Amino acid sequence: MNLASRQNAQTLIAIEMDKYRICQGAADLDGAWRALERAHIVAQPFFGPHWASHWQMAGFALALQDWREVAGQLFRLALVPLGSLTSRLPEGNTGRARVSAFKPMPVPADLAVAISPGDKQEQDR
């Protein structure tokens, strides 16, 4: 992993987390989840940010009393170390409990452009 790609990812994650907080404050739950999902997509290649994205999702689900999502996030928190060790992270996966933790998904076009080639290579491993 190169430093530039990690810094780029951290910037993109921060942007999505800002969107999450704005949507959460405006009671836009769909927008808040969408921002968390996008932060997860960018964070996946990096152990700490990936784990933190699931922690944030779990906290949001808990606040909403969405017990299915809370359980799904706890499962994913347990999987993050294994996925990182084996480099088996499904590209584009949104990280939500409503989709398989193992299913690759399309990366939104604007994120695909924003993710540097170094970040993309980390995701492909």
Rank of each mutant, 00 (worst) to 15 (best):
F102T: 11
A101R: 03
S84V: 09
A78K: 14
S87P: 00
V80K: 08
F102M: 08
E91L: 06
L77Q: 09
T86E: 00
L85A: 15
T86Y: 09
S87L: 11
S84Y: 07
G95H: 07
V107L: 02
G83W: 01
P106T: 03
R98I: 12
R88H: 12
R96A: 02
R96E: 05
V99T: 09
G92V: 11
F75D: 13
T94C: 14
P108W: 09
L85P: 00
N93D: 14
A97N: 06
F75A: 12
V80D: 07
R98A: 08
G83T: 03
A109S: 13
S100Y: 13
F75Y: 15
R88L: 12
R98K: 08
P108D: 06
V80R: 04
N93F: 11
A97H: 05
A101W: 15
T86M: 06
A78Y: 08
T86K: 11
V99E: 08
G95V: 12
A109P: 02
L89A: 01
P81L: 13
T86I: 02
S87R: 15
A101G: 10
A101K: 01
D110Q: 05
G95I: 12
G83H: 08
E91P: 00
K103S: 08
S100P: 11
R96S: 07
L85Y: 07
K103G: 01
A97P: 01
A97Y: 09
F102A: 14
P90V: 00
A101M: 09
A101D: 06
S84W: 13
L77Y: 05
P108R: 01
L82Y: 04
S87I: 04
P104W: 02
R88A: 12
A101H: 12
E91F: 00
L111P: 02
E91I: 13
R88Q: 14
G95D: 11
L85G: 11
S87G: 15
T94F: 01
M105A: 05
V99Q: 04
L79R: 15
R96P: 10
L111T: 10
F102L: 12
P81N: 02
F102D: 14
P104H: 05
P108G: 07
L89H: 02
L89G: 07
S84K: 08
R76W: 05
T94V: 15
G95L: 08
V99C: 04
S84P: 00
